[in-house]
Amino acid sequence: MSAEVMDAPPQLVPLNAIFSTDFVEILVPVTTANTMDEVAAAVADHVEGKRVRAQPFRKVVVHRGRKLPGEMTVAEAGFAPLDHVAVEYDLEVPA
């Protein structure tokens, strides 16, 4: 990633997201500086404990079929506005 991109102020990136077994897709505002752990938490905040029962597992962001590392930023993932992500419970690793 270029130095100009790394030094740029965070930009708003609205994402279409669905959480685990929820049936409602939501629009979640995140920034290019947010990590995948923060994106997962932002999505879960709208759904977990409301329409989907909370589970004691770590949450992961899935984009185009791949699980993204929790420390990866939105900018590093290359998300574009209105990209679709899913947030799933990682059943292999306890929180």
Rank of each mutant, 00 (worst) to 15 (best):
N16P: 06
V30T: 00
V24R: 15
E38R: 06
L12F: 09
R64M: 13
F23S: 14
D90L: 05
V74E: 03
L91Y: 15
P14Y: 03
G65K: 12
D90S: 02
D83C: 05
K50C: 07
A80C: 14
G70A: 09
N16W: 07
A3C: 11
H46G: 04
G49R: 01
H46C: 11
P69L: 14
V87N: 04
T21A: 11
M36W: 05
V13G: 01
F23P: 01
A44I: 05
D37C: 03
D22A: 11
Y89W: 08
A44R: 00
P94N: 10
E92R: 02
F23T: 11
L91N: 08
N34H: 09
V39T: 01
A42V: 04
R64C: 10
G70I: 09
T35W: 04
V28I: 06
D90F: 09
M36S: 06
A44M: 07
V43P: 03
E88L: 15
A75Y: 14
Q11P: 07
Q55Y: 02
V74L: 02
M6Y: 06
V5N: 08
A3R: 07
E38N: 01
L15N: 01
M72T: 13
E4K: 13
T73M: 10
A3D: 11
A75Q: 11
V87K: 14
P69I: 11
E4Y: 12
A95I: 01
R64Y: 13
A40T: 00
V52Q: 01
A41N: 03
P94S: 03
P29Q: 09
V39F: 10
P94C: 13
N34Y: 06
H46K: 13
T35G: 01
A75V: 02
V47W: 02
L15P: 02
P81S: 09
T73W: 05
V85M: 07
P9T: 06
E4F: 11
D37E: 10
M72E: 12
G65A: 08
V60E: 10
D45T: 00
E88Y: 11
P9N: 07
V93E: 14
G49H: 00
H63P: 00
A3H: 13
A42S: 10
E76D: 14
K59V: 04
F57Y: 14
H84P: 05
D83F: 02
P69A: 15
A77G: 12
H63M: 08
M6H: 08
A41E: 15
A77V: 05
E38I: 04
E76L: 13
A42M: 10
E76P: 04
V39A: 02
V61I: 06
G70E: 06
E4L: 05
V52P: 04
M6D: 12
K67V: 15
V74F: 07
L27T: 07
E88C: 14
V5A: 12
V62N: 13
R51W: 02
A44L: 03
R58P: 06
A3V: 10
I18V: 15
E38A: 12
L15Q: 01
E25R: 14
A41H: 00
V39G: 03
Q55V: 00
S20K: 04
H84C: 13
D83L: 02
E88M: 11
L82C: 07
Q11M: 14
A44G: 02
F79S: 03
R66M: 13
A40C: 01
G78H: 07
T73S: 14
K50L: 11
H46N: 08
A80T: 09
A8F: 10
A86H: 15
L91W: 14
P81Q: 11
M72I: 15
N16L: 13
K59S: 04
V24I: 13
